[in-house]
Design a protein around this nucleic acid. Structure first.
Lengths: 201, 201
DNA sequence: TACATTTGCTTAACGGTGTTAGATTATTTA
DNA sequence: TAAATAATCTAACACCGTTAAGCAAATGTA
């Protein structure tokens, strides 16, 4: 009786359709315009059936966050694997992070709470940890003195992350002040190099 | 006929009461709990009268943003005037900025859109420009080569601002990860010193 | 085949939101 | 005192997230 599976597959399809619809709305109208009824409209159902697939609106947001981290992890992994030296890896990874933020503004806003109604949980999500550990590993390899303490890695990680996230936030919340893309890239690369240099000095 | 003025003063008082009530709600329940009806409750009116004082909810938010910038500007000015050298001024000013963010979390969230439903306009608000120019002036005085181009100042300004805002954002959105206050202060001061040093090298 | 049960989905509702229009009450003016 | 103006409220609109109840079609069972 393969109909069981067919039905399960159908259920999975609508689940995906819900997520796609949500993403679509957000990309065209922004996060504040996302509503259950609008999602339902787009998938040609009524709002309550969404609750058969997700426990509530935050559930949808959480799943989208998860998908965002998967995308980001893929980009960062690819950037890392394109280079040999730890210095080059580090720069490429953070630039991949930067590019992700602007290529997928909505995801970034959701994942890092820039200008967003932030869903509460999402601390220590497995997929987020992945990104963190990839970056952490390369940071560790930047240290010449071994062994490297967890605190040292953590501190440098926060330093990198802060400046990049800060730069992104400023640009996402206030798009095109008087800063150009080139200027931003310059600030970014300078900052990365500066932090990287400071690790062994 | 002094009653005209008395009435005007009364109107101004309710206006202030509205803002105070809004701030009070936000401080105790967070931004997402702020509603027109709740404000009205607190000032013992009904919701529609608020519209006699502010054009809409965003109007209230905008006025609070303005007040936030006034507070921040005061802190930064005082920090600046406590020191002689430009280096010391710079560090003290950014630390004042940092302290403001945590002493007035709600204001900071409103002003810089961290984890907040951001009201759209508020770009280039006069009070915000004040803060910017104070910091910009000290940055200019850090350069040994004169004259300093607008671009140079802008770039360094964004570099400072990014790392500080990034660090704040991360700590405001995810309070108490594994970073302590001391660690944050250390990262902050290190970063400020690094950027300051890099200006003339 | 006939009945019972489950499934998929909808309608209707609850309590909340920002906001506006109209009615009502109180105050000031003539 | 009567008219005009100002201050305030009630009621409503259209939205929101969410839940409960009901209907209709598909399915399982006798």
């Amino acid at each position: 009786m393969g109909s069981k599976e067919r039905i399960l597959r159908l259920k999975d399809e609508t689940r995906t359709k819900i997520l796609d619809a949500a993403l679509n709305i957000v990309q065209t109208e922004g996060w504040q315009a996302l509503s259950m009824r609008k999602i339902a409209d787009q998938i040609e159902y009524t709002a309550p059936i969404i609750y058969e697939y997700f426990s509530n609106k935050d559930g949808i947001l959480l799943e989208l966050t998860r998908r965002g981290y998967l995308l980001l992890a893929k980009d960062i992994r690819e950037a890392r694997d394109k280079h040999e030296s730890a210095e080059d890896k580090m720069e490429a990874m953070w630039i991949a992070y930067w590019n992700f933020a602007f290529a997928h503004k909505e995801f970034y806003q959701l994942m890092y709470g820039v200008d967003m109604v932030c869903c509460t949980v999402k601390n220590s999500m497995a997929e987020a940890e992945n990104v963190g550990s990839m970056l952490g590993d390369v940071i560790e390899s930047l240290f010449e003195k071994k062994p490297v303490s967890e605190d040292d890695i953590c501190m440098k990680y926060y330093t990198y992350w802060s400046i990049i996230h800060g730069l992104i936030s400023i640009n996402l919340v206030r798009p095109n002040g008087r800063t150009t893309d080139e200027l931003n890239q310059q600030i970014l690369k300078d900052a990365i190099k500066g932090i990287t240099l400071s690790i062994n000095s």
